[in-house]
Nucleic acid binder design. Structure first.
Lengths: 109, 109
DNA sequence: GCTATTGTTAACCATATAGTTAAGTATACC
DNA sequence: GGTATACTTAACTATATGGTTAACAATAGC
């Protein structure tokens, strides 16, 4: 498992690189939901949603349990934290520079 | 420019989804560098590096200026902060839950 | 048993990534 | 001028994404 976390970051960032998948995650951040509920805001076919779900699952960002014919989906926080940790790790160096832009952005979230 | 920031996030997260590009950004977080310096750690051809550079530039994560025949490359912090902001925005919801896993992860960075 | 609902799989098409080798552009050096 | 260096472009191949329609599996409700 030398560089497995690298592969995991590949999948996590790749999963975040699509607006539908980010929309699904945003919805799930407010609570669990079924696949149909997650699909509702988007004008794509059901199979397209299935594919996005698989990419999110493979990335470890989402998990689900089957209850009858409904799939109950929820966020997996761990991998998302890994992704955030990668960005933050390198922001530490930037903070050392602390230039005008950095200050500006701190004031305006 | 209704949903242009969405497209920008697509590109930023997509750019972060490859170990060579994350390596390039990590190197640049410690200071400016030439293309050759950025390429050195990786066992791929020069054209492959050129392509990664273009993806990083298109994502707005990297900029450069030509000095003679050498390209001086540097980080663009703004877009990286946008990407981080997206993750943090939704982590706020998760923090509200503050379940056992969240606590566990806080103790073990 | 029949039918509607939930969700997936299969098969297909278009485009984007990710890499290669070979050739080209532009600057530096002598 | 001639050659080496830094980097890009062109052309090609393989695989992954992102979408479609059509068909299938499994459960719920009557």
């Amino acid at each position: 498992m030398v560089n497995n976390s690298g592969r995991q970051l590949d999948l996590a960032f790749g999963a975040l690189a699509h607006p539908i998948r980010r929309g699904i995650l945003a919805r799930l951040s407010m609570g669990e939901a079924s696949v149909a509920e997650l699909a509702k805001p988007f004008k794509v076919s059901a199979p397209a949603i299935t594919k996005h779900m698989k990419i999110l699952e493979a990335a470890g960002l989402l998990s689900r349990t089957k209850q009858g014919r409904v799939h109950r989906c929820r966020l997996e926080q761990r991998r998302m934290r890994q992704a955030q940790a990668w960005i933050e790790k390198h922001r530490a160096f930037w903070n050392a520079k602390l230039d005008a832009l950095e200050l500006y952005l701190k004031e305006t979230p």
